[in-house]
Design a protein around this nucleic acid. Sequence first.
DNA 1: TTAGTTGCAAAGGCTTTGCACGCGC
DNA 2: GCGCGTGCAAAGCCTTTGCAACTAA
Lengths: 136, 136
Amino acid sequence: MSDLLQRLRGRGWRLTSQRRVVAEVLDGDHVHLTADEVHLRAAGLLPEISRATVYNTLGELVALGEVLEVSTVGRAKRYDPNARRPHQHLVCSGCGTVRDVHPVGDALGDLPDTERYGFTVGSAEITYRGLCPACA
Amino acid sequence: MSDLLQRLRGRGWRLTSQRRVVAEVLDGDHVHLTADEVHLRAAGLLPEISRATVYNTLGELVALGEVLEVSTVGRAKRYDPNARRPHQHLVCSGCGTVRDVHPVGDALGDLPDTERYGFTVGSAEITYRGLCPACA
DNA sequence: TTAGTTGCAAAGGCTTTGCACGCGC
DNA sequence: GCGCGTGCAAAGCCTTTGCAACTAA
């Protein structure tokens, strides 16, 4: 069983074949699938799985903090299983490819107090945009 | 006539009362309206304006580079008229309020070559998240 | 056993589209 | 007058919801 499933079971997550398949499909680096893509691939492993269950499961994984929602490409949300290692995204403006990247600076520290409007600022998400080798 | 309308007319943009009203509604700093909110406010000034026209006009303003799409809050896209002055966004996780902010660092320079996967990287968008004074 | 999960189908929110009419240039 | 812009209504995409049947623990 994957680390992810281990952790979830430890948190009292009821383990069904549908959930197992969704977790399996989301495994890996640089994975940023839409709900529909997850459903398509999951259905390859478990043909009866329904879209509603995929949406339910993705929503739970997000609520549990195990998966991140990425809204930076196209209309549909994308799901990023790499929630445990902080990272940012590099998006190709041509084909929409997304890579996980790790910048070296401190974006939070770069926001002066005078620019915070009294907010308690907790995090910073960065989306880099450019062209991938194939599109350039 | 506003600077925006001046510029657009110079680029051969046909000036209708609907377009004028949409541009008027979008004027100002820290403005991040959804298409529906734009339609609502525009209809306050020009009751017959249709949603389709609002969508058409917003799409054109984005294509012309005069307005930015912001997809970082909620389900509907938001439109940011402040496209001529580079800036980033600070979003309240409680109520969804958005402020324009200006960090001091160089996010682009913070992305090492080894993290660029051969991409030609052109820009970086940063979304800061936190709680506004009212929600904290 | 039993509370939580699934699948279906329908509804819902946001956006786009096709086409006839209208209006800026 | 010409050609682009507008409004309407319908369709489309993505997502959520209600509910009865099912199943992991």
